[in-house]
Amino acid sequence: MKNVFSIAIRTTIVTLVLTGLIYPFVMTGLAQVLFPWRANGSLVTDEKGQVVGSELIAQGFANPAYFQPRPSAAGEKGYDATSSSGSNLGPTSKKLQDRISEDLNRLNGENPEATGPVPAELVTTSASGLDPHLSPQAMLWQLPRVAKARGVAPERVKAVVDSNVEGRTFGILGESRVNVLLVNLALDRQFGRPAPLPVQEKGL
C-alpha cells in the first residue's frame, strides 16, 4: 500500500511536468518559430500599420458604409472576444423569436434597396458570437446599402467582395464564405475611410 502511494504521487508529479508543462512550452516554442502570425492571433493592420483586429474574430460595424457581420451573443453588447458565447436559445424560445423580429425590422429599414428575403445568417447569432464570416449571398444582400453610403457604383463594391470569397477547402470541406473585416478594410483602402457616424446615431 505504501509503495502504491509513493508511485501514485511520483507519477502525478512526473506526468504533470511532462504533459502539463514541458509539452505546452515546447509547442509554444515551435509555434512561435514556425507560424508566429497565426500563433499570436492572426492580427490585421490598416493602411497606417495600426492593428485594427484579428482576421478570425468578428467586430461590430454600425456605419452603413461597412458590411455588417452576424449578430453576436458574446458579452452584453456583442463581439466581446473575452467572453465568447452563443445565444443558446432553442427553437421554441419566445426570446429568440422577438430578437429575430427586431433584427429583421432593423435590417429591412437599413437596407431599403436590398432584394429578396433576409438571409438567415444575418438574423441568427453564431455559435461563438465571434463568427468573422458571412456567406457570399449575405454580403450581396447588404451590398446596395454599402455602395450607396460610399457613393460608388455597386459593381465596384461587388468586385471587392468577389475577390474576397474563400471557397470550400479542396472544393469539399466547409462552406464558401467572405471575411467581413477583410472586405471592409479592402473597401477603405480602395475608396477611403467613410466619415464616422454622428455620435447620437451610433447607439441606436
Binding site: N88, T125, S128, G174
Partner: peptide, 12 residues
Amino acid sequence: AGNMEGKEVRYG
C-alpha cells in the same frame, strides 16, 4: 442554409 442559430458560417 438550414437552422443557422448557434452555428458558424465556415462550418455550416
